[in-house]
C-alpha cells in the first residue's frame, strides 16, 4: 500500500513555487479571465469588483458570488484564486468546496475579524496573505499561509506603498543576517513570531515562502521595479482592466516580469500601451481609507 497525501504543506507551498516569475491578474468576468490567460497570466484572482471600484463604491466588500467564481473556473485552464475577508473562515470553507486553487485572505475586503486570522493549517487549499513587514509575513506563515504578498495599497495605481513594504521585509531580513543569537530572541518576541521561524528565515536569507508584490503595480516598469527589489512575482489588480488596453498592458507586464533585468526589453514592451489606470496618490488618501493597515 502506497500512501497518497493531499493538502500537505509541500504541495501548498510547491504550487506557489510554480507561480514564480509570473503575473496574477484581478478579473471580474469570465471574459476578462480569458483575456488574462491569453496575455500570459499564471493565475487569475476572481473578484466581483476590482480594488479601485471597491475603493470608489465604499460599503462592505465581501467574498465574490460563487457563480462568478465558477464561471471563471470553467473558462480558464490556469489556476483561479479568490479572496475571503480576514478571519472569515466560513467564506474560506465555501471557496475550498468550490475547488478554487488558492485563497487570498485579503485586506482589500472588509475584515470580518479584527483580532484573528483564519487558521489556515485546517485547509487543503493553500492561502496567500498580505504583509507590510517581516513580522506580519511570519505571523501569517505561522497561521499556515503558503505564500505571502506585500500589501502595497490596492486600487491606487500608486506603487509607493508596494515599494515601502517590499523594502521593509528585505531590510528586516538583512538585519537578521548579522544579528547575534541573544538579540534574535528579543527580535522574535518583538515581532511576535517563533524563534524557530525567525532562525529559519535568517538561514535562508529570505522569507520561507514565495513572496509576490501587490497593491499599486500599473506599468511594466512598476512590475520590474518590484522584481528587482526582490519580489518573486507580481499581482496586478486594477492596473490591467482599469487601463485603456488590458490585453496589451497585461501582455507587456508579463514580459516585464520575465525580463525584469533587461532595460532594452522593458523599453520595448512599454511602448504604445495607451492610457494607464488614472490612479490616486496614496498621500491624498485619508487614513481611514487605507486598506493595508486593516490587519497586523
Amino acid at each position: 500500500m502506497v500512501d497518497v497525501l493531499t493538502g500537505t504543506d509541500t504541495v501548498k507551498a510547491g504550487h506557489a513555487q510554480m507561480l514564480k516569475g509570473g503575473v496574477i491578474m484581478d478579473v471580474v468576468t469570465a471574459e476578462q479571465a480569458r483575456i488574462a490567460e491569453e496575455a500570459g497570466a499564471v493565475a487569475v484572482m476572481a473578484l466581483e469588483r476590482v480594488p479601485a471600484d471597491i475603493r470608489a463604491d465604499g460599503g462592505v466588500a465581501r467574498m465574490t458570488d460563487p457563480s462568478i467564481i465558477c464561471a471563471i473556473m470553467d473558462t480558464v485552464s490556469i489556476p483561479v484564486m479568490a479572496k475571503v475577508r480576514i478571519g472569515h473562515f466560513v467564506e474560506a470553507q465555501i471557496l475550498e468546496s468550490l475547488g478554487v486553487d488558492y485563497i487570498d485572505e485579503s485586506e482589500v475586503l472588509t475584515p470580518a475579524d479584527e483580532v484573528h486570522h483564519v487558521w489556515k493549517h485546517d485547509f487543503k487549499v493553500p492561502f496567500v496573505c498580505g504583509c507590510r513587514d517581516l513580522g506580519e509575513a511570519l505571523r501569517r506563515i505561522s497561521e499556515g499561509a503558503a505564500m505571502i504578498r506585500t500589501k502595497g495599497e490596492a486600487g491606487t495605481g500608486d506603487v509607493v506603498e508596494a515599494v515601502r513594504h517590499m523594502r521593509a521585509v528585505q531590510d528586516n531580513i538583512r538585519k537578521l543576517q548579522t544579528m547575534p543569537d541573544d538579540e534574535l530572541v528579543v527580535e522574535a518576541r518583538d515581532l511576535g513570531v517563533s524563534l524557530d521561524l525567525l532562525t529559519q528565515t535568517r538561514e535562508l536569507g529570505r522569507l520561507p515562502t514565495v513572496n509576490f508584490a501587490a497593491g499599486g503595480v500599473a506599468t511594466p516598469a512598476d512590475a520590474a521595479l518590484m522584481m528587482q527589489l526582490g519580489a518573486d512575482g507580481v499581482f496586478v489588480g486594477s492596473g490591467v482592466f482599469k487601463s485603456g488596453d488590458p490585453a496589451e498592458r497585461g501582455y507587456a507586464i508579463v514580459q516585464a516580469v520575465t525580463h525584469y533585468k533587461d532595460p532594452k526589453i522593458l523599453a520595448e514592451v512599454s511602448k504604445g500601451l495607451g492610457e494607464a489606470m488614472v490612479g490616486i496618490s496614496t498621500r491624498s488618501l485619508p487614513a481611514e481609507q487605507l486598506m493595508a493597515p486593516r490587519s497586523i
Partner: peptide, 9 residues
Amino acid sequence: RQVDSFEQD
C-alpha cells in the same frame, strides 16, 4: 485542481 495535488512514493 490544486486541492487534488498530491505526494506519493
